[in-house]
Amino acid sequence: MREGREAEPTAGITDAQSVRAAAMVPTASRGYDGGKKVPGRKRHTVTDTLGRLLVVAVTAANIGDRDAAADLLARLRRLHRDITLVWAAGGYTGSLVGWCRNKLALTLEIVKSTDDMTGFVVLPRRWVAERTFAWLMNFRRLARNYETLPATSEALTLWSMVTRMSRCLARPRAAGRH
C-alpha cells in the first residue's frame, strides 16, 4: 500500500531457480537440471509485480517448469483469489496455458525473448522474478540447499522473504515520496 497499490495483488510473475544441494540432501529429493548443469533442487516461485513472494514450491532439479507449475498455480489460486494474470518464461508454454485458463480462470501470458536478442537483455515483467531470486540468494542459508525435506526449504524461503519485507516496512520513508 505504501507503493500506492492495492493491498491484494491482481497479477504475478512465475519463474524457477536451480540451486545446488549439499551432500546431506537425500538423493530421492534431488536431481540434475541439464539446462543449467546444476545438481540439486529447483525453487518454483510466484511473485507479485513488486517482487514479493506469494507462493514457493521446492522440487528436485530435474522436474520441469511446466510439471511443477500446475500445482504451484493451483496453490496460488487458492491463496490469492484476486490474481487473474500471471507472466511466465518460455518454459511454461504448451497445454499449461489452456489448462490455467479453463481450470483456474487464470491468464498465463508467456514473455519470450526474440531470436535477434544477443547477450543479456532485460525482459519485461520477468526481471521482477529474477530480482526476487537475487534477494533470496543474499540469505546465506539459501545460496545452497542444505535441507533434508523440500518443505523445510520452502519454509526457509518464505522466512527469508518475511525478513526482507519487515526490513522494508521498518525503513524510514524517503523525503518527498508520498
Rank of each mutant, 00 (worst) to 15 (best):
Met1Asn: 14
Met1Tyr: 08
Met1Gln: 08
Arg2Thr: 00
Arg2Phe: 00
Arg5His: 06
Glu6Gln: 11
Ala7Gln: 11
Thr10Trp: 06
Gly12Arg: 09
Asp15Tyr: 12
Gln17Glu: 05
Val19Trp: 03
Ala22Phe: 10
Ala22Thr: 10
Ala23Asp: 15
Met24Glu: 15
Pro26Asp: 07
Ala28Asn: 13
Ala28Arg: 14
Arg30Pro: 05
Gly31Ile: 00
Gly31Gln: 01
Asp33Leu: 05
Lys36Trp: 11
Lys37Asp: 12
Val38Phe: 02
Pro39Val: 11
Gly40Glu: 06
Gly40Ala: 09
Arg41Tyr: 07
Lys42Arg: 06
Lys42Phe: 00
Thr45Asp: 00
Thr45Val: 15
Thr47Pro: 01
Asp48Asn: 10
Thr49Pro: 05
Leu50Gly: 02
Arg52Val: 05
Val55Arg: 01
Val56Arg: 01
Ala57Glu: 09
Thr59Gln: 04
Thr59Pro: 03
Thr59Lys: 05
Thr59Met: 07
Ala60Gly: 13
Ala60Ser: 15
Ala60Met: 02
Asn62Val: 13
Asn62Arg: 00
Ile63Glu: 00
Gly64Val: 05
Asp65Lys: 15
Ala68Arg: 00
Ala68Val: 00
Ala70Ile: 07
Ala70Trp: 15
Asp71Tyr: 05
Leu72Arg: 09
Leu73Met: 08
Ala74Arg: 12
Arg75Val: 02
Arg75Lys: 12
Leu76Ser: 02
Leu76Cys: 09
Arg78Gly: 09
Leu79Lys: 07
Leu79Arg: 08
His80Thr: 06
Arg81Asn: 13
Thr84Pro: 01
Thr84Cys: 04
Thr84Leu: 03
Thr84Glu: 11
Val86Trp: 02
Trp87His: 15
Trp87Asn: 07
Ala89Met: 05
Gly90Ile: 12
Gly91Leu: 09
Gly91Met: 09
Tyr92Gly: 09
Thr93Leu: 08
Thr93Val: 14
Leu96Phe: 04
Gly98Ile: 09
Gly98Pro: 10
Trp99Lys: 11
Cys100Leu: 10
Arg101Gly: 01
Asn102Arg: 12
Asn102Leu: 11
Lys103Met: 13
Ala105Thr: 03
Ala105Lys: 12
Leu106Ser: 08
Leu106His: 01
Thr107Ala: 09
Leu108Gln: 10
Glu109Tyr: 02
Val111Arg: 03
Val111Cys: 13
Val111Ile: 15
Asp115Trp: 09
Met117Phe: 04
Met117Lys: 04
Thr118Glu: 11
Thr118Gln: 12
Gly119Gln: 06
Gly119Pro: 04
Phe120Ser: 07
Phe120Asn: 07
Val121Phe: 08
Val128Cys: 11
Arg131Tyr: 13
Arg131Ser: 09
Ala134Val: 14
Ala134Thr: 14
Trp135Ala: 13
Trp135Ile: 06
Leu136Ala: 15
Arg140Trp: 12
Arg140Asp: 04
Leu142Val: 14
Glu147Ala: 01
Leu149Trp: 14
Leu149Ile: 09
Leu149Met: 15
Pro150Gly: 14
Pro150Tyr: 12
Pro150His: 05
Ala151Gly: 10
Ala151Asn: 03
Thr152Gly: 00
Glu154His: 13
Ala155Asn: 10
Ala155Leu: 15
Ala155His: 14
Thr157Ser: 15
Leu158Pro: 06
Leu158Phe: 13
Trp159Met: 15
Ser160Phe: 05
Ser166Pro: 03
Ser166Asp: 03
Arg167Tyr: 04
Arg167Glu: 10
Cys168His: 08
Ala170Pro: 01
Ala170His: 02
Pro172Phe: 02
Arg173Tyr: 00
Arg173Asp: 07
Ala175Lys: 11
Gly176Phe: 01
Arg177Glu: 03
Arg177Ser: 04
